[in-house]
Design a binder for these strands. Structure first.
Lengths: 258, 258
DNA sequence: CGGTCTCTTGACCTCTGTCAAGTAGAGTGG
DNA sequence: CCACTCTACTTGACAGAGGTCAAGAGACCG
C-alpha cells in the first residue's frame, strides 16, 4: 500500500469509534457539528466490509438496504450507454458517505463500485435515519454533503463539456488533490493516484490512449511526475494553470445558518 | 406565446394560491404530500418577479436571499471556463424550484439565468425554512427534489461524456419532453422547444453549427419536425431509439418510505 | 424596410478516437 | 532467481467526429 492510505490508519489499536473519525472529519469540513452530534455518530453500530476493485456496492435499479461510508480506498459511481461506453459520474474518497441518496429515493440510478480495494463502514438505514431525523445539525450536514456532490457534478459537466483533454485531466487532478488534502490529517504533498489510465479515461470522457498522450504533456511540463506507473503531483501551480482551477465549487467550510 | 405555456395559465382569474399549483404538482410527482402540506405551501407569502431572457436570477459567488420557484418559462444553470466556453449544467422547467441549494449552502457555485421570459414566485428564505423545518414530509420533498436534479446531472455526464452528437441531442429532447409532460395537466404531444441552436449547443457541449447539422439528421429521419424555427417532436419512439433513452434517472413517482 | 439575430451551408482543420503491435512491470510458480 | 503470464502502459499510423471560419439567407422587430 502506498502512502495514500497511510493516514487512513490500518492501526489495530484503533477502536471502532476511532475508525469513523475520517467520516466525521469529512462532515466537519463543511458542516459544524457539536461534540454530542459527533459522539452520536461514533456510537452508531456498523459493520466493516471489504471489497476488491470493481466489486459492486450498489447496482442501478436496486434498492439499498444499508448506508455505506468509505473508510479506506476509492470508489466511483458509473453509468453506461447502450453502445457500451462507460462514464464515471462521481469519484468518492475516504471519509465520503457513498449513498445518502438511498435514504430518500427508491431505486439507484447508477452503479456504485470499488475503485481500489476498499473498506466500508456499513450502517443500517434504520439506525442512520433514527440518528439523523431528530437532529437538525446532522440532517443539515447530510444535505450539505449531497449538495456538494451535486456541485462537483456540475463542475464535471463544465469540465467534460467545454475543456480540452489537457485542461480536463489537470482539473481532475487538482480536484482530487484538494479533496484528499481536505480530509488528510497530515500534508499529502506527494500523494500517489491509484487510478489507471483507463479509469482516468472513463472519468473524463476520453480514451485511454489519449489519456496517455495527455499525461505525457503534463509530465514534460513538470506539472506531474511518475514513479514507475504511479502518478504524482509535480507542480501544483502549473497544474492549476493548465486546469483553470478554482475550488469555489468544493464549498469548503462555507456553510450558512448556524 | 406558443402552446408551451398555455397550460401554465396566464389566466387572470387565478388566485395567488392557484399559481403555485404547478409547483405543488411538481413536488407531488415525486413526493407524497398531505392536503395540509399542500395548503401550507399555498398559503406561503411570495412575490411575483418577471425576467427577460438571460437575466440573472443568481450569480456565481453570491449569497441568495430568496427562494425562487419557476412558474412560467425556462431557466438554466450555467458555468464558464477560462477560455470563455459556456456550459449549461441544468435546465429548469415550469414548476421547478430554482434554488433549494441556497437554503443550506453559503455561496452559489454557478449562474442561474432566465432562458425564456420567465415568471418566478419568490419566497423569503426565512418563510420557506420556517415552513419546511417542522414538516418532515416537506423536508423530504425538498431533499428528493435536490436528489433528482443530481441524478439528472449524472445522466448528463454520461450523455456529454460518452454519447455522440446525434444521441446526445435526441436524449436531451427526450428528457425535456418527459419532464414537461410530467408537470403538464393536459397532453403536450406537439410542444415546441423554446431553445435556440446556440443554447442547445451550450447544453450539450457542442457548437451551434454542429447542432444545426445534427438537427437536420433527426429531421430527415422524421424524429423531429420544424415549423419555421420552432422545434417539435415528430416521432417519440424514433427519438428514443436515437437517444438510448430510459427514464429511470428521472425518478418519477418512486419515493421510499412514507 | 433597414437592422439584428438566428439559422444554414460549404470548405477546411484539428482534436481525439481507432487499431494494432510492442514494451514494461507486478505477481506467480517453479 | 528465473521463466511465464497478465495487465497496464506506450507508440505510431490513420480515420473521423466535431470545430472553425466565413458568407449568405431567413426571421423577426421596430
Amino acid at each position: 500500500m502506498p502512502m495514500l492510505v497511510r493516514w487512513m490508519g490500518d492501526d489495530p489499536v484503533m477502536t471502532r469509534q476511532d475508525r469513523l473519525g475520517i467520516f466525521i472529519r469529512k462532515l466537519l469540513s463543511h458542516s459544524p457539528l457539536s461534540a454530542e452530534d459527533q459522539r452520536e455518530i461514533r456510537d452508531l453500530p456498523y459493520t466493516i466490509r471489504r471489497l476488491e476493485p470493481n466489486e459492486h456496492i450498489l447496482r442501478e435499479g436496486e434498492k439499498a438496504k444499508v448506508c455505506p461510508v468509505l473508510l479506506q480506498g476509492y470508489a466511483y459511481r458509473q453509468k453506461t450507454s447502450a453502445d457500451g461506453g462507460r462514464q464515471i459520474v462521481a469519484l468518492k474518497i475516504p471519509g465520503d458517505a457513498l449513498d445518502f441518496q438511498s435514504l430518500y429515493v427508491e431505486t439507484a440510478d447508477h452503479n456504485l463500485q470499488a475503485l481500489t480495494p476498499v473498506e466500508l463502514a456499513v450502517f443500517a438505514i434504520k439506525d442512520f435515519e433514527r440518528l439523523v431525523a431528530p437532529r437538525p445539525n446532522l440532517a443539515r450536514a447530510v444535505l450539505v454533503d449531497i449538495l456538494i456532490e451535486a456541485s462537483i457534478a456540475r463542475e464535471w459537466l463544465l469540465n467534460i463539456g467545454r475543456r480540452n483533454a489537457l485542461a480536463r485531466l489537470a482539473h481532475l487532478l487538482c480536484e482530487i488533490f484538494y479533496r484528499v488534502q481536505q480530509i488528510a490529517q497530515e500534508d499529502v504533498g506527494g500523494f500517489e493516484l491509484p487510478l489507471t489510465q483507463e479509469q482516468l479515461a472513463d472519468l473524463l470522457g476520453l480514451t485511454p490512449v489519449h489519456i496517455n498522450r495527455t499525461i505525457k504533456i503534463l509530465e514534460n511540463a513538470g506539472a506531474v511526475r511518475r514513479i514507475s506507473r504511479r502518478l504524482t503531483i509535480g507542480d501544483m501551480s502549473k497544474l492549476r494553470q493548465f486546469a483553470d482551477f478554482s475550488d469555489l465549487y468544493l464549498h469548503r467550510n462555507t456553510v450558512s445558518g448556524i
